[in-house]
Design a protein around this nucleic acid. Structure first.
Lengths: 193, 193
DNA sequence: GATTTTAATGAACAGATGTTCAATATCTAA
DNA sequence: TTAGATATTGAACATCTGTTCATTAAAATC
């Protein structure tokens, strides 16, 4: 079962398209594997040859979205030569732009009946991006008994906390608003009482 | 279908016990509704009279756990009369103790094939506790354009970020270590560079 | 304690799941 | 271009899901 095999690629493509078609009609939890296979004109047994659950199929789709997240994050690095990366700069991280762009998608990711897998994919993405920055820029100025892993997990999930709040308001606030909130929180928390 | 009806209570108790028995043998995702009903000697139709999915049953179990979280949180308030609640004090919040106490349970909550529901239950719990404190103690000293909702979501999910990292190391770090990490992070982030 | 209310049961249903298998179609590599 | 490799198919199977219904059993209320 090599990934370059034309038969495999064709099958996966068909399943991919079928899922997207069905997702435009109903939520993921109401779509059955049998249904996807009927739509894709692929034998149900073939599905199980490549995936365990419909979630695995959706996961592949997520990979592409995460590519955009990485690019959104790198963007400011390409534009500016020297970057002030002392603490997370909300103007440089473009995470909220990315979420906004794929909000149809993230409505699924954050819906309550979906498995945690997707949440972790987003978490891991943000985590690794932040960790890279924290490791290179902040390590010298940080309390030395702070674990970088815990610190990165803290910061990454804090941002997702904002996204959850945003999602629960159906993404009605603007990206600018979100960026300002993050900037204000970081500023406030740093200045103390 | 009144909740005080003895028949209902007996049925729910039986399903509850059956779930706990099975959970000690295999993960939630490998347990079927039919299996729970066989174990509980309850008709499968009766199950659907009370719940939609096995997750609903697990959710009821979660409610009891959350009761402990609330109590853990209130505990320091009962001990000390006046409390310094300027910013989150890791010594007063007993969240990590609570997680430690129910780590068997939280291993399920954070496992990747489980629906987001439980995550949100934990999030909402921490969120509401923090929000209450933030509203009463911090509002006067905070940048006035910070939304308390966003700020609470940020802080609540940041703490869960630490818990996720903790969970991924199978809770091998000590509660003390976690408390220290949180204290150091809050201190570090506040003092700036 | 008798009556009314209602929860639980068992049976039956169409459809979904997850797995296996031999037969077939389609690709790859020589 | 052919021979070998392997992905796909269709069929079959036991089990699970979600739902309906008349019947039975057990509670609540009087």
């Amino acid at each position: 079962m090599r990934t370059t095999d034309l038969r495999v690629m064709k099958t996966k493509q068909a399943l991919h398209n079928a899922l997207l078609t069905l997702l435009s009609q109903k939520p993921l939890e109401q779509i059955s594997i049998a249904e996807i296979c009927r739509e894709a004109k692929v034998n149900r047994g073939t599905f199980y040859l490549h995936y365990e659950q419909k979630e695995g199929l959706f996961e592949e789709y997520f990979q592409e979205i995460m590519e955009d997240l990485y690019q959104s994050y790198e963007e400011p690095y390409r534009a500016v030569t020297t970057l002030d990366t002392n603490h997370l700069d909300p103007n440089t991280i473009r995470i909220f732009h990315h979420i906004e762009r794929f909000k149809m998608f993230y409505r699924i990711v954050f819906s309550k009946n979906v498995p945690l897998t997707y949440y972790y994919m987003l978490f891991d993405g943000i985590y690794s991006l932040l960790k890279r920055d924290i490791s290179t820029h902040h390590v010298h100025q940080m309390e030395d008994h702070i674990s970088i892993d815990y610190y990165s997990a803290y910061q990454a999930n804090a941002i997702i906390g904002l996204i959850i709040q945003w999602y629960r308001g159906d993404f009605s606030d603007s990206v600018t608003m979100l960026n300002k909130q993050l900037a204000a929180i970081l500023k406030n928390v740093r200045s103390g009482e």
